[in-house]
Structures are given as C-alpha cells and as structure tokens.
Design a protein around this nucleic acid. Structure first.
Lengths: 265, 265
DNA sequence: CATATTTGTGCACGTTTATGCGTGTTTTTG
DNA sequence: CAAAAACACGCATAAACGTGCACAAATATG
C-alpha cells in the first residue's frame, strides 16, 4: 500500500464504506500500515463531517438511516428493488432514457449500475438527485411547476420541454392498471404529460408492483397496445396479463424470468 | 531535468496531477532540483487559481473536492441552520423567491416555515424536493442539463427558462468571496446562470458561511455593488466586510442581529 | 548607460500538522 | 462482574508549513 496523504486515505476509507457497507478500524490500520489511533482520528473527523457514522470497532455509512432526504428515497422496498433489477436489463448502453416520476422508477434509478452510460431525462427531482450520484449518467431535468402529489413536474411547460427530446426508452409510472391493461393516473395534467412522453418514446416500459392491478385512477394514460413492455412481480393473475399479451406487450416477471436475459447481450 | 520557467513548471505539475491523481511537494522539489519552498509557492498559487487542492504534503486535483451535494449538505449543518434562520426573515409573504443551487440555500429551504406562502423557483432538485414538503409553497423547477458539481441545472436552457420569471428575491450561491466582495463560481456555465438570475431579480441576497471568505473561484459572478444583502456568520474580519458596506450592501450577521425573539444579545 | 523596480529563488526562523506511544477510561462480551 | 478490546486524551517528535529577508536576474525607467 502506497503511502497516502490524509485526504487520500479518508477518501479511500469512504470508498470502502460505500462498497462494503462498513469498515473496521483494526483492518484499516493494518492495510494502510499505520496505527489504529490515526484511523480512529480519521473516522472521528469523517463522522464529525457527516460522512459516516462512528461505531465501536469501525464505522458505518451515514445513509443507513439518517437524512430526511434520503429517508424518503429508501422507500424502495425489497419488492421494488427486484422489480428495478429486472427493468435495468432493458437499458442498453448509451441510450436516452426517460424516467417518469414515481417511487418504482426511483427504485430503478437507484439500482442503476455505476458503469452504465446513458442520458437520463426525468421530471422528478428525487430521481434527478439519485441519478446525479451515478458518475456516467448525464441528467436532464424537465422544468415546470412541481405537482407534489405526483412528485414531479407536469403541465404545459413540461410538455414543451419534452418536445425536443425523443427518448429511446421511457419508464412511465402508473397509478393503476385496469382490466384491459390500460394505464391511468390520479391527476389530469399528469396523465396528459405521460401520454405525450409515451408518444415520443421509441419503447415504453411500465414497471408496476402487484397492487397496481387492484387500483384504478380517473384519468387514462395509455391502452394495452400503447406500451411495449410490462415489468411486474410474480403472482399476478394470468387473466389480468392476457389482454396485454394479446396486444403484443412483452411481460417480464421480476423474480422468475430474470435469468432469461443472460443468454446474450 | 532541464531548468524550467515558472509557467512551464506549473504546467508540468498540473500534468502530473492529472496523470497520477496526486503530487508530493518533496518529490517534485527533488525532480526539479529546486527547493521545496518554491514548490510550495507553486502549489499555493495553483490552489489559489482553483487548479488544485492544497493538502499537507502536496496537492490533489480539484475534482476530488467537487463532492456530490449530499455530502456538502451535511457539512457544518448547525452553522448553516443559524444562517438560514436569519435569511428567512428577509422573505415576505406571497413573494416569488429564487433559490440557487447550493448547500447553504438548501439549508434555507429546509428551514422555511410551514405557514409561509411563497412561489419558489429553483434550479436544484435537492432544494425542490425539500420545498415540496412545505404545503403552502408552489415549487417551480428550472429544467435543463444537471451539473453534478454545481448540484443544479445550468446552461442555455436554464437561462431560457428563467427568462420568463422575475423573482422578488434571489438567494444566489457562491463558491468564494474575493477581497473586493465579489462573488465567484467554480464553473463557467454556473457563473453565467447566476449572473442572469441576479440581473432579473429585484433583490439579490447572498448567504455565505465564514470559509467562503477564504475561498476563491475562477469565474466572476457579481461585484460587491451588484447584490443587495449578505447574510453571514459573526467573526468575519471587518476589513473583508468594509468594501461591501461601501458598495451599499446590507450585512446581516446571523446569531447576533437576529435577536427579534431574544430582544438583545 | 545608470538606476529603480519587479520577480524568482533559497535560507533561517518559528509555527502548525500528522502521527505514534503511553496512560487511563469506556464498551463489549463471556 | 471481570477480562479483553476499543477508545479518548495528553504528550513528544518529525515533517511540512508560512513568513520575513537576502540576493540575483530580468525588466522597466530616467
């Protein structure tokens, strides 16, 4: 291990903290060939700067439960995370991807692999914030008036801003999926925005958890034939998926059929 | 090693900095066959010009210091909170307020009182997310390409989006305050955006912690006379504030003059 | 041409910083 | 509750640092 300067060492500690989820004072001292006292001083400083949480024996990432901001984001439940992993496989390198506002799409953004280089467009500040931490992603934010129910920007200005962008892939959020496989939204402006974005995108993908099939919302967004792929969980009744299959919509079940992707790339 | 002129030597140092990610004062002195004092002077100059970050033992690239916004948020949050409370008092009901990207302005947004009804405009997704939690605030998001160093949207599209908005108050962020009280930024596009927003706002307010007075950044944003109010901490040297007072800039020291609630200090 | 002025450099000095060690305290664990 | 591990604190030291000063070379000025 090369002799590192203080800032380099602390950056390396921070890197391992993110990678491994924890660091141990003793093993760090051994690796860096310095005393544990110095490591402890480092960890103390970093904790004081809010970069980690000090614990007996080492340190943990601060993201474990702290900030109000990241708190809201970590609603990515285990189920949504597995959904997100399946959806990720649909994103090719160097594509332009639109992320519609919504917690499921936020989970996809969170799960984005660090070495995926894409242009990401979103109308959601939370998703933008998440994507900003992926070094290879160029983040384009759609501006306009923020709808706090939707959690994203909708309305005329948002549509205008989208009109110069043609995404390769669009992850559209949905509030409910009706019996015919149609998507719907709780807000009129949101529905209009989703419609517009779907119309401009080469490939429209819906990632939806099981309970979306039980929910209905007043404003129609897209019929079964108007989106190309549905990523969902196992356990959705077959007769709900049938109209989608008929309409030519590809259906991916997150936990089960995920291995199918590994054949070729 | 051939004898090099100052500029040549500094260019070579910069080259190695990019190549190796670090330089050591001692080894540079040995290679160039000059004293460490001279190397230190070089590094000091380069750091002052924003070309590197000076550390004990050598220097690191500036990109290392360009941390993501979630990190900057947590630094010195207590101090920023008191700054934010002082800044809040400057916001009238039902005004249109622009929040520039930056951790200090994020603290202001966080401290916004629940019963304050304003239209808030911001180019920062983090600030937008924070403001979305204040029920009476209408949030307008400026769209465009996100600069992850700035933590906000800058560039031509952002300026275009701002051109239809005329804020009553603008909280502009700054990376450094020079001896004449001028504001500066680390990024060219950011500086241009800040300039534009300041020019459109009725009242421009800068909230800056103490250490901003020790920092300099390459791109000029506004001279002392071009903003109306500075909110800062107690303990800034009087001779640094003097040029601001002369230029007619109101100066508020958070903690000291804030005492509307405590009467006196 | 002679004389200031500026600039780059090295040296001496006192100061600050990073680190390791000893000592006593706190926390964990069996 | 007792032993072991981890810890905080003070101290010592060496390296790195900033500053003031001297000197030489380059440059400007009369």
């Amino acid at each position: 291990m090369t002799d590192l300067m203080v800032q380099e060492r602390q950056a390396e500690i921070l890197r391992r903290l993110k990678q491994d989820g924890r660091v141990l004072a003793a093993s760090l001292a051994a690796e860096f060939r310095i005393s544990e006292d110095t490591i402890r001083r480092d960890l103390r400083d970093m904790a004081h700067a809010g970069l980690c949480e000090r614990v007996y024996g080492g340190a943990l990432p601060v993201s474990q439960g702290a900030t109000t901001l990241t708190q809201r984001m970590s609603v990515a439940s285990e189920r949504k995370k597995s959904l997100a992993l399946a959806a990720l496989a649909l994103i090719p390198q160097r594509s332009a991807v639109f992320f519609d506002a919504g917690s499921t799409n936020l989970a996809i953004a969170e799960a984005l692999h660090e070495d995926l280089m894409v242009t990401a467009v979103t109308n959601s500040p939370a998703i933008a914030l998440m994507l900003a931490e992926k070094p290879l992603v160029e983040v384009i934010l759609i501006g306009g008036s923020l709808d706090r129910v939707v959690g994203g920007v909708v309305g005329a200005r948002a549509i205008e801003a989208m009109s110069v962008i043609r995404p390769d892939i669009c992850f559209v959020g949905t509030c409910g999926i009706d019996a015919d496989g149609g998507l719907s939204a709780f807000r009129l402006e949101d529905a209009a925005f989703k419609q517009f974005v779907c119309g401009r995108s080469r490939r429209v993908i819906v990632a939806a958890t099981r309970e979306k099939f039980d929910a209905t919302a007043p404003y129609a967004v897209a019929a079964a034939g108007q989106y190309h792929c549905l990523v969902t969980e196992p356990g959705v009744h077959a007769h709900r998926l049938a109209p989608l299959r008929e309409a030519g919509c590809e259906i991916i079940e997150a936990g089960s059929s995920e291995g199918r992707k590994t054949g070729r790339d």
